[in-house]
Design a binder for these strands. Sequence first.
DNA 1: TATCTGACGATAG
DNA 2: CCTATCGCCAGAT
Length: 104
Amino acid sequence: MTALVTMGEMEQHLIDVIRSLRPGEVVSYGDIADDAGFHGRSRAVGHLLASTNEALPWWRVVNSTGRLVPGNEVQQAARLRSEGVTVVGGRVTRARFGRFKPAE
DNA sequence: TATCTGACGATAG
DNA sequence: CCTATCGCCAGAT
């Protein structure tokens, strides 16, 4: 097994933040990067979620406008709804405890 | 080392 | 609300 090879500190911090997400909580890539102490590294979060093999709650992560992941919208919407998150038109409109809170 | 790509973000139209 | 564009950063080629 050669998993977790190029695991730098940043990746470890980002993973830690993502793992801390609770059911019904939805945050943006930028929020995760910021919480991990890497402001502006939102793209690193997306790349991590797309490339890692870790069991992370990827469906609780959306972009800054609440848009879901292109290509996985259906599955993501289903998972979020099962956690009580309202999704309309492929976008999160409301989260229970999320830092992402668009104006309704 | 140079260039391209993308699960991003903010702004302008 | 939508797309277009630019700035950003880490990986891939």
